[in-house]
């Protein structure tokens, strides 16, 4: 990694999300991908096939734990049981790192099982930064937080999403998982410039990219993870690689999941595109400016 902020986040290469329809194929054929990302909550179970599969996959590949229920922005107390079990799972499989989302998923002890955006206010920034620090203490490691796709904004937001995310990473000393598709979707839905978003994110804080497909619902784009990565998102990915370097990149596909080869091909495309952007350099100079002539 090119800076201290990236310490602990290994250069994993190009991976795909580990999903049940592919368990058999992955275990039997050990396909050529660099790493897998597992949804943390799916493996916070007592035993049985999920953990068995995860441990066998881990024997052959690096594994990252990616959560959807940390609810870092909720005003509910942090779920100490969840954090304890997550720490145990991460230790058990020697997870390369742990990530979750910059969002809230529930309140009043209820879980919406969705990733809701926060108001980008000073109050929310203070609240989330303090919770990230406590979570990192509880997990014993720095975490990465991902920007979410969103379909609403709040009247009391006083910061842009990118300024909020950048400030949070600095204040809480956490890393950023930059979901390029989510930047694209939210930029479309809220009418901001996706390239301006990328340009405002501190290079040294970004440790991973996500790529996924979305759906066009006319009035808005929806982050459905049920399509290939579209050309416009590939173009934005090239901009991101230009700015942040050829960071570990993951292909997400969660609905209408195709044969594993399709995901593998997407990961290979990401690898090829990053190589094309970076040339022979594994990582770009973190201080180099964002090229103005790339973009979606």
């Amino acid at each position: 990694m090119s800076s201290a902020a990236r310490t602990g986040f290994t250069d994993l290469g190009y991976g795909v999300g580990l999903r049940p329809p592919h368990y058999g194929h992955v275990l039997e054929t050990r396909p050529a991908v660099d790493w897998f990302e597992a949804i943390s909550e799916n493996f916070l179970v007592a035993g049985g096939r999920p953990l068995h599969v995860l441990e066998r996959v881990r024997a052959d590949y690096p594994v990252v734990l990616h959560g959807v229920s940390l609810s870092i922005g909720s005003t509910d107390p942090l779920d100490r049981d969840y954090l304890s079990r997550l720490r145990q799972l991460a230790a058990r499989i020697e997870a390369a790192w742990i990530s979750d989302h910059l969002c809230w998923t529930g309140v009043g002890s209820h879980n919406l099982h969705d990733l809701l955006p926060l108001p980008y206010s000073e109050e929310a920034l203070d609240h989330v930064a303090e919770r990230v620090r406590r979570v990192q203490d509880a997990l014993g490691r720095r975490i990465a937080l991902e920007n979410v796709s969103s379909y609403l904004t709040y009247c009391d937001s006083v910061l842009s999403e990118w300024d909020f995310l950048a400030a949070l990473a600095e204040r809480a000393d956490c890393a950023i998982l930059l979901d390029v598709n989510n930047v694209f979707v939210s930029a479309h839905n809220h009418g901001f410039d996706a390239r301006a978003y990328l340009a405002a994110i501190p290079v040294e804080r970004v440790v991973q990219f996500h790529l996924a497909g979305h759906s066009d619902h006319g009035t808005h784009l929806l982050d459905t993870h049920d399509h290939p990565v579209c050309d416009a998102v590939w173009e934005l990915y090239a901009v991101a690689v230009q700015r942040f370097g050829a960071l570990p990149t993951l292909i997400e596909w969660d609905d209408r999941i195709p044969a594993f080869d399709r995901l593998q091909a997407e990961a290979q495309r990401a690898s090829a595109l990053a190589a094309e952007v970076c040339g022979d350099h594994a990582r770009r100079d973190a201080t180099a400016p964002l090229a103005a002539d790339h973009g979606a």
């Binding site: 909720s74 005003t75 809230w104 529930g106 309140v107 009043g108 209820h110 919406l112 969705d114 809701l116 926060l118 108001p119 206010s121 109050e123 929310a124 609240h127 709040y154 009391d156």
Partner: peptide
Amino acid sequence: MLAETQQLLWRLITA
């Protein structure tokens, strides 16, 4: 303020 916002949204989303 943040808590009120989240409670309002939860109430309407789960209606």
